[in-house]
Nucleic acid binder design. Structure first.
Length: 440
RNA sequence: CGGAGUGUAGCGCAGUCUGGUAGCGCACCUGCUUCGGGAGCAGGGGGUCGGAGGUUCGAAUCCUCUCACUCCGACCA
């Protein structure tokens, strides 16, 4: 993409309303634009990141055997009245009337709807199943803040598992647990699973996945061992019940809790002082096992091998996709701007033409730009006639993992400068080697 | 929902107390000089002053109502 043809409204100054780093940087780098309290338009740069994250989530859900569907944002209130949550949910739920005066709502979640969908299944032979979708939700928060980290409208992946009995349900829960470890690790995050309150959704088993960031909403206490574990390689056979359970055990046997669940005495007893870590965390995922909480009232029954009808056992599994965009920035930025982990970066590298309009420089840049594009490398090419200083600032701000800098000075010797955004490391690379270096 | 604020050009702000031609910086456009970490000079464009009503010869400014947004607290993926 050529910046001269792109839409990337960079703000030179900090917008006054943005208090935290991710919000400030997302506005400055032209990723988002606020439309109302807690609701944002995703501009090209932000949208690219959102889609990358969404795709990683999708791939890991699929890998774990979940099946993608898409349910509407606007739901009929009927199902919610049946489950009892229409009254229980409170003003967070945005209630709407259609032209026939029917009660509708903008879905804050989809347990009722998916359970109703699943009622068509009659036999245990069609279990287990796990259905998920990635859809916009709306929760009318009293006080939205922190940009996309706590908006009212947000993109969420929610999955729902259906099993015949508690034991099978546990395996479904464990599979999602492992899928979450993989998902966050692929984004360059260490999201620590912590035992959680089950909250209004209810249920027995529940874990939250939190990433560490100073601006996190809750205080967290955990064992340093988490950081020494292998977060990169959970290549696992999801059908191997024992191995999946073992991995979950490994990650849940160590102490980790948010302030809500924190038990000081237990923490001090189980974790040696040298390994005790405290900090703040941002919740990016939450999984529940809630059994028959919805299947019973909504009549989602299947016939077991013994011919008896039983309500299915369910769990639900959420990931805050749009929140992750902010969360990743909170976990990865410096005073100059964003530092994107490569798997979610909007572009892999930024190509800077230091002297646009100069025939030789233009030609060298053009050759590299086309060469990389031909190899499928995502390049943002700054072909504008801005001054070098401004280009450097903007490129650091938007945080692409690599910068390739080409100007007359290096061109004399046939070299380009390659800069790593994260480490700041620079090296001179012969022009002829650039394309090879960045093609996979 | 309690408390505190703010709405004036794309962004950041002054002007409001004390009514009298709507300003400044950045950004933007034109030209010239510059050109490896946010350049200089000259010229220029852009505003229903959040909205409605009122007072007045005259309202960004005073009065009434209203809407939106931000921050702190309680609450949350």
């Amino acid at each position: 993409m050529r910046i001269s043809q792109y839409f990337m409204p960079i703000l030179r100054d900090d917008p006054k309303e943005a208090e935290i780093a991710s919000h400030r940087l997302m506005l400055r780098s032209g990723m988002i634009r606020q439309e109302a309290a807690g609701s944002y338009s995703w501009l090209p740069m932000g949208f690219r990141v959102l889609k990358k994250i969404e795709q990683i989530v999708r791939e890991e859900q699929d890998r774990a055997g979940a099946i993608e569907v898409l349910m509407p944002t606007i739901q009929s209130a009927d199902l919610w009245k049946k489950s009892g949550r229409y009254n229980a949910y409170g003003p967070e739920m945005l209630r709407i009337r259609d032209r026939h005066d029917r009660d509708m709502l903008y879905g804050p979640t989809n347990e009722e709807m998916i359970t109703d969908i699943f009622r068509s299944v009659q036999s245990y032979k069609d279990l287990p199943r796990n259905l998920y979708h990635i859809q916009w939700k709306f929760r009318d928060e009293v006080r939205p803040r922190f940009g996309v980290m706590r908006g009212r409208e947000f993109l969420m992946k929610d999955a729902y598992s259906f099993d015949l009995d508690r034991e099978a349900g546990q395996h479904s829960y464990n599979k999602m647990f492992v899928a979450y470890l993989r998902t966050f690790a692929r984004m360059g995050l260490k999201a620590v699973p912590m035992r959680a309150e089950t909250g209004p959704i209810g249920g027995k088993d529940s874990h939250e996945f939190l990433i560490l960031a100073d601006t996190g909403e809750s205080e967290v206490f955990f064992d340093r061992d988490f950081y020494d574990m292998d977060w990169s390689n959970f290549d696992i056979d999801y059908d191997d019940v024992g191995k999946v359970a073992k991995l979950v055990d490994d990650f849940t046997s160590k102490y980790a809790a948010t302030d809500e669940k924190h038990d000081k005495a237990e923490f001090e007893q189980r974790v040696p002082e040298a390994r005790r870590l405290t900090g703040r965390g941002i919740e990016v995922g939450h999984i529940f096992f809630f059994g028959t909480k919805y299947s019973e009232p909504l009549g989602c029954l299947v016939q077991g091998p013994d011919g008896k009808q039983v309500p299915v056992q369910s769990g639900s599994y959420g990931i805050g996709v749009s929140r992750l965009v902010g969360g990743i920035i909170e976990a990865s930025h410096d005073e100059n701007g964003i530092i994107w982990p490569e798997p979610v970066a909007p572009f892999k590298l930024g190509l800077i033409n230091l002297k646009a309009g100069d025939a030789e420089t233009d030609q060298a840049c053009e050759k590299i730009y086309r060469g990389l594009a031909a190899k499928g490398v995502e390049v943002l090419y700054d072909d504008t006639d801005e001054r070098p200083g401004g280009k450097f600032k903007v490129m650091d701000l938007i945080g692409l993992p690599w910068q390739v800098i080409i100007g007359p000075r290096g061109l004399k010797d046939g070299i380009a400068e390659v800069k790593n955004r994260k480490t700041g490391e620079r090296s001179n690379v012969p022009l002829a080697d650039i394309i090879g270096r960045f093609s996979n």
